[in-house]
Simulated assay, not measured.
Amino acid sequence: MEGDVWMKGYFRKRGARWSFTLDIGRDEKTGKRKQKTVSGFSTKKEAQAAAADLIAKFEQGQYVEPSKVTVNEFLGDYMSVHYRSSVRPGTLERAEHMLKNHITPAFGHAMMKNLKPLHFQRFYAEKSEAGLSPGTIKGMHTFLVTAMEMAVTWELLPNNPARRAKPPKQQQHTISVWSHEESEMFLQHAKGVSSYYLIFLVALYTGMRKGEILGLRWDDIDFEAKTIYVNQSLTYSLKELRISEPKTKSSKRAILTPVHVLQELKKHRLRQKEIKLKLGTGYDNALAEKYVFTTSKGNFIYPQVLNKALVKLCKELELSPIRFHDLRHTHATMLLSLGVNPKIVSERLGHTSIVITLDTYSHVLPAMQEEMVTNLETAISKIQTVL
């Protein structure tokens, strides 16, 4: 065995391998000297390079002592200290399901300090082979990247190993929309047979999300200003209905509403009062007086009920089936087809950025380009005629 002193520590050779030991200060609790030993180098030169790199990290304040906690222990702290209070109930429910059924069984007992990008890459491959969709795996990846970033912030990891793994690519979802004629045909049919007609009308002509419509209060409607204000949303999570903040900050918005829709809302309010008088004590007065859309007994409407009603109506009309959220897409597509500025459409939908609007509704843009060129040619021909 041979050794020599170098800077803040020393190098040592045992058999064919080299190691180095550095003094890294004193323990805050005991006052005893702390040392850091790293081994496994083929040559002394490799050990010296690694030691120099470690010393540089110490001097720049970038060194993170490898964590002795497991992934399970960290995620438990992450969920209770940070995540639970920062997300909506529905998001929390999905995350807890993801942890229990996928992440914890895969590498919950692994040590945080041993995590490498390969752990995450293998995890994504296994889930893909098990039949999980790219979108679901992408959701897990997003969660893990965010969690591991917090581990770096808490100085449990020197860097984020999840960030360098790549989830499977998602196929771009093709949105389904109705034409203006199909929308009108649907509404005419729904008006005569469905108690949810007005909800479908509001969705098609305001672009509001399902939860935003079900969470709408009469106080959120300014009939004189012809405006609906989106201030909250009704969600179903943890097996119960909850009123919560809208999806994003930009989701809180004011929507100018067609007169026809406002007139239908006024009629609906009168019918609501008639039902209240008819049922008397069997009616939830407090809830129904406050909220625009309730059941016949004045209770909240479960979101999934609308999905079934929409499917049923589509079958009756032999219309191409679409999701409730596609009513929102139909609204946006109609506006863009009418030449409405995408920025206005973006604000109306409550998107966080106009980029989302342009990416989502790129299928409408070619037609808009053609119309623009036609209008431009008409304008040029008029100018040439004058000249």
Score class of each variant (00 low, 15 high):
357 T>Q: 12
333 T>V: 14
294 T>Y: 11
302 Y>D: 11
362 S>P: 00
267 K>W: 13
240 E>A: 12
341 N>S: 06
267 K>F: 13
280 G>L: 15
225 A>F: 06
362 S>R: 05
356 I>V: 15
325 H>M: 11
243 I>H: 06
367 A>Y: 05
278 K>D: 13
350 G>I: 03
306 L>F: 03
306 L>M: 07
362 S>I: 04
279 L>I: 11
366 P>N: 03
339 G>Y: 05
292 V>Y: 12
311 V>E: 15
366 P>A: 04
244 S>C: 15
345 V>I: 01
332 A>L: 11
358 L>I: 01
339 G>P: 07
316 E>L: 06
355 V>T: 13
312 K>Y: 10
283 Y>L: 12
360 T>P: 00
301 I>F: 13
315 K>Y: 13
304 Q>R: 09
354 I>S: 15
266 K>A: 07
351 H>K: 01
269 R>A: 14
234 L>A: 02
256 L>A: 15
328 R>L: 08
252 K>F: 04
354 I>D: 01
266 K>E: 05
305 V>Y: 10
313 L>Y: 05
345 V>F: 02
361 Y>N: 04
305 V>C: 07
363 H>A: 12
360 T>H: 06
246 P>Y: 11
250 S>Q: 08
296 S>F: 09
275 I>P: 03
279 L>E: 15
355 V>K: 14
228 I>W: 11
276 K>N: 04
294 T>M: 12
366 P>D: 03
244 S>T: 15
327 L>A: 01
360 T>K: 05
366 P>G: 02
355 V>C: 05
290 K>T: 15
312 K>M: 09
276 K>A: 14
264 E>F: 05
340 V>K: 03
340 V>Q: 03
330 T>P: 02
341 N>A: 06
307 N>W: 08
298 G>T: 02
228 I>K: 10
288 A>Y: 03
232 Q>D: 01
272 Q>H: 12
253 R>G: 12
228 I>M: 11
225 A>C: 07
356 I>R: 06
297 K>D: 13
311 V>G: 00
289 E>N: 15
259 V>L: 11
279 L>T: 04
269 R>F: 15
246 P>F: 07
302 Y>R: 15
226 K>N: 05
360 T>D: 03
283 Y>R: 09
346 S>R: 08
261 V>P: 04
241 L>Y: 00
287 L>K: 10
354 I>P: 02
247 K>N: 09
291 Y>D: 01
366 P>M: 05
316 E>I: 00
286 A>E: 15
364 V>Y: 05
270 L>H: 03
319 L>T: 09
306 L>N: 03
348 R>C: 04
316 E>F: 00
259 V>R: 05
286 A>W: 09
313 L>E: 07
353 S>K: 07
304 Q>L: 04
278 K>W: 14
